[in-house]
Design a protein around this nucleic acid. Sequence first.
DNA 1: AATACGGGGTG
DNA 2: CACCCAGTATT
Length: 227
Amino acid sequence: MSPSQSVVSTFQRRLLVWYARHGRDLPWRRTRVPYRVLVSEIMLQQTQVERVVPKYRQFLRAYPTLRALAAADVGDVRRLWYPLGYNIRPVRLHAIARETLARYGGRLPDDGDALRALPGIGRYTAGAVLSFAFGRDAAVLDTNVRRVLGRVFFGPRRLRRLRGDSRLWALAESLVPRGRGYDFNQALMDFGATWCTARRPRCAPCPLRRVCATFPAHARRRRGAES
DNA sequence: AATACGGGGTG
DNA sequence: CACCCAGTATT
């Protein structure tokens, strides 16, 4: 069951308006260089934005280009990564740099399957690179988008019954407005990270509450006894 | 479908 | 202490 066209366009429009007003100014939004976008996305895997920002700057100072990273010692790259965690990530990122140099002449491929064939790049990161570096209308589904779409389009009960992410991926892909993949995906993630948060979502001032399948539940709970 | 993989932050 | 965080790869 897919949402009506009017709900979809309302969702898209209101989210983009929200983003224009409340979107964060993050370092990786100031570049479209694929290598830099990739570095940010690998760092952001299961790692909060505030912890990534300083390490992102430090990493790019040390390895400003994909070629510089490819030429580096992988042990040095690993040490620079600490304490971000998931320490296989820098090893795979380093491998991506070398493989990209060897197979693609040093240019990251603007193709989902080719990106996903690289180590450490899954469906989310491929979508992020496609939309944020190459301006494609590809979808992303991370923990933020999963929560936002789950709440708005499925609601608390139906979300629990979802098996796997295939429905959410299909929904995410159907929502991306033509030509607005970059802004829409950034907006969705910013909204999940700062507004439609896991704990204590800001429902009262939410621009999407009129189309949100979960808002009634929150309102009900608020009348009851939640802090 | 379930689990391993880091480390830091929050209520 | 339990849960959360711009996921991916392997069982």
